[in-house]
């Protein structure tokens, strides 16, 4: 059974790109165009990882993370935030945006757009693999 990844982003083109990329890396992808849709899909299918954009209409990424944490069915699913907002690189001091984001429940990692494709796939594999709920998984 391939690992399930739910992609929540309001940019249709980017959803498509991520789906193509992750499918070719062996993941099963589904997508949602905003936080509200993402929440209901997450609750219905309990994916292994959720990729969340922050700035979205309807329900934004921060609200989505909080809603996911509130629901027992989705609370333990790791979240990867993909955002245009600045992300602190290793060895750098955290800025205030990043500090705010770190307070979001369930967020395992943040990456800034545009991202490096290989790094994205590596990160997804890592997050799915180390998820205690996820069994053997990819990577370590």
């Amino acid at each position: 059974m391939p690992k399930q990844v739910l992609i929540v982003d309001d940019e249709a083109d980017l959803r498509r790109a991520l789906t193509v990329r992750l499918t070719s890396a062996g993941f099963a992808c589904q997508t949602a165009a905003n936080g509200r849709e993402g929440l209901s899909k997450a609750q219905q299918t309990a994916p292994d990882l959720i990729i969340v954009d922050l700035l979205m209409p309807e329900m934004n990424g921060s609200a989505l993370c909080r809603e996911l944490a509130r629901d027992a069915r989705t609370a333990t699913i790791p979240i990867l935030v993909l955002t245009v907002l600045p992300v602190t690189r290793p060895g750098q001091r955290e800025d205030s945006v990043e500090r705010e984001r770190r307070k979001l429940p369930g967020v395992a990692r943040s990456m800034q757009k545009p991202f490096d494709s290989d790094e994205l796939v590596r990160t997804v594999e890592e997050l799915v693999g180390t998820d205690p709920q996820g069994g053997e998984g990819h990577g370590r």
Partner: peptide, 14 residues
């Protein structure tokens, strides 16, 4: 600008 750039970059990589 970052959003469209992300899509361009990703499809180029694909």
């Amino acid at each position: 600008l970052r959003t469209p750039l992300t899509t361009i970059k990703e499809f180029t990589a694909i």
